[in-house]
Design a protein around this nucleic acid. Structure first.
Length: 273
DNA sequence: ACTGGATCCTGATCGC
DNA sequence: TGCGATCAGGATCCAG
């Protein structure tokens, strides 16, 4: 479900509703574990702590409580939604917190690849060590990034999804960005030219921003905090369109497995050479 | 040091 | 209709 745009939207939703200095006044847990054990004690210890801010790093949502940080990852199918008092629990609702005795936020995740974790703020650097650069950060050095990509022998599609160099791009946006730049997803990183990398990184930023504007991509179950779908899937050129016609050249869109993930591309618009 | 396959889990879909 | 196989937005671990 969630790549950078979707996580960014959830994050913006939460931070516009949960203001700084708000406190969590209650936790409810409906099962002991997600991907990892739910750290109930650490979460209880956050009760009454004033929130500083909610922010995003890569595909992680960070609730900054000063001394401690609550980290939420959505995995493939995780979601946060706001509910009213007296709400009805759905099948895959796993935990919920109440803000200032009023608003309630529920975490649901059918596949349970998501998780919740609490760390000390001082550990933030080491927790995210090895995580790549943010595509939408002004300070990101794309020249350095290009040099790092150049050294890889993997196909460009796989490299784009590798969070160690560049964060936020997942299976959907990797295919979409490569289509828009005319680069074949099977092409090796080392064979891609400087000019192509320049347009590629530029296009990544454009696509991610457009997707955020469109409220994200809802393939099956992505919803924002109000339960609304995004509409960026309406603008897909290739993702999930195998066998359909390319919007640009009318060739057949193809799909192939790369490192176990489906890649979609137009063989005519994205030639290997 | 890189690269990709297997893995965690549930649900939807497809072919027989 | 029913059943098993396959695949799904992520990230980590492990072997080659």
């Amino acid at each position: 479900m969630p790549e950078l745009p979707e996580v960014e939207i959830i994050c913006r939703n939460l931070s516009s509703r949960i203001r700084p200095a708000s406190t969590i006044t209650d936790w409810q847990f409906f099962r002991p574990d997600l991907r990892f054990k739910i750290p109930k004690r650490a979460l209880h210890n956050l009760l009454g702590c004033p929130l500083i801010e909610i922010k995003r790093r890569a595909k992680y949502i960070l609730f900054d409580f000063g001394e401690h940080i609550l980290i939420s990852h959505l995995g493939m199918t995780g979601s946060w939604r706001q509910v009213e008092a007296g709400w009805e629990r759905k099948k895959h609702d796993h935990l919920a917190f109440t803000i200032s005795n009023k608003a309630i936020y529920v975490f649901a995740d059918p596949r349970r690849f998501g998780f919740i974790e609490v760390i000390r703020s001082a550990e933030l650097g080491s927790r995210f060590i090895g995580l790549g650069v943010e595509p939408l950060d002004k300070s990101t050095d794309f020249i350095k990034l290009q040099a790092a990509f150049k050294r890889l022998n993997a196909p460009i599609k796989n490299a784009l999804m590798n969070q160690k160099l560049l964060v936020g791009v997942g299976n959907i946006y990797a295919s979409e960005v490569l289509f828009r730049t005319g680069i074949n997803p099977l092409k090796k990183c080392a064979k891609i030219t400087a000019v192509q990398y320049q347009t590629l990184f530029k296009e990544i930023c454009i696509v991610l921003r457009e997707a955020i504007e469109a409220g994200g991509s809802s393939i099956s179950d992505y919803r924002n905090v109000d339960g609304e779908k995004g509409i960026f899937q309406q603008f897909f050129f290739v993702y999930d369109r195998a066998g359909e016609t390319c919007h640009r050249c009318h060739s057949n869109i193809k799909s192939v497995l790369q490192a176990g993930r489906s890649t979609f591309w137009c063989p005519s618009c994205q030639k290997k050479s």
